[in-house]
Amino acid sequence: MGARVQESKLLDIRTATELILGGRVLVISGDENLLERLPKGNWIGGTIPYFYLKNECGRMDKSKVFVTDFTESINDFKILTLDEETLSSICLTGFDNGFNFLILPALQSIHYNFALNVRHYEDLYKNPLIGLVAGTSLEENKNLSKTFNGYLKESSTTQAVVLQCSLLPSKVARIEIVNVFEQSDDFYIEVFEDTFKVKDCLINGDWINLYQFIKDKEVDISYPLICDYSGASVNVSFQLLVNETKEVVFYAPLFKNKRYYFSKKLDSYQQSFQAKIAEVLERETLIIYNCNSILNYLFGELHKNDIGFSGATTFGEIAYCLLNQTFTYLAIDE
């Protein structure tokens, strides 16, 4: 038996507008100028112009928006804008049975705050907390990413937006991840505070400057660090090496009391993904949403390759916590 995958679509602005005016409950990704033009309605959005597509090559597209329509899957919904203070109550304001879809603006205080503190949120595991970090065109680094509350027709560069959905009692939503990267056991890293920036750390128990270690060992930083969360491989991706301060900056935090490993080399992202996703499709019944990292889009050259799914790329994936370089999906069990 194979999973049924509810397809999300890249649509022109007119079709997306018609869906909104028809009262559909939507998550929309796209270029800021297009999202600004959409009417008020039951939708949330985030700026992201990169898409991976089924049966065709992925692309950056500023003429269309990517739409996930949850209307047929859900029973009820609400849309909220959250600031740093109210974000921690996200799991308390949702429904008894359902899921929460969160969009955060990239590299803002609320993004860092979420990444560092979400594991302490009350009732975190009551319902799936899934979502994405919005981003911008990689060539136009000047713009900030934006989140959109379509219900109020408001946008923000600093606040998060959540679509809280309820499901019928016969249905349960479940988040799962597909991580093609595997840890290499040669070296492990430990830090002594929860941090996005690392200068000195322990590598195999020795106190070492991480920046220098990466330079000396010629580590390929397009591969993430990996941490084992009791069977879940959680990636932390390198953002940059700062020459002036000899620091290494990451897209997600490294936490103290955990061991982070470098990744094994892959021959092909696409082939590794296909091998892992085949098991998923065999196991699952219904998948209603998926997203993949912009770093996997670049790493796997998804502008030239098809991985059998369509989705918007993300500048960080939310699966209860902040992930990097990970394919994330929402399944429904009945």
Partner: peptide, 13 residues
């Protein structure tokens, strides 16, 4: 090692 992400995260906790 559970197969389900939420159980993995809960056991990690």
């Amino acid at each position: 090692k559970f197969q389900n992400l939420v159980m993995q995260l809960k056991i990690m906790e």
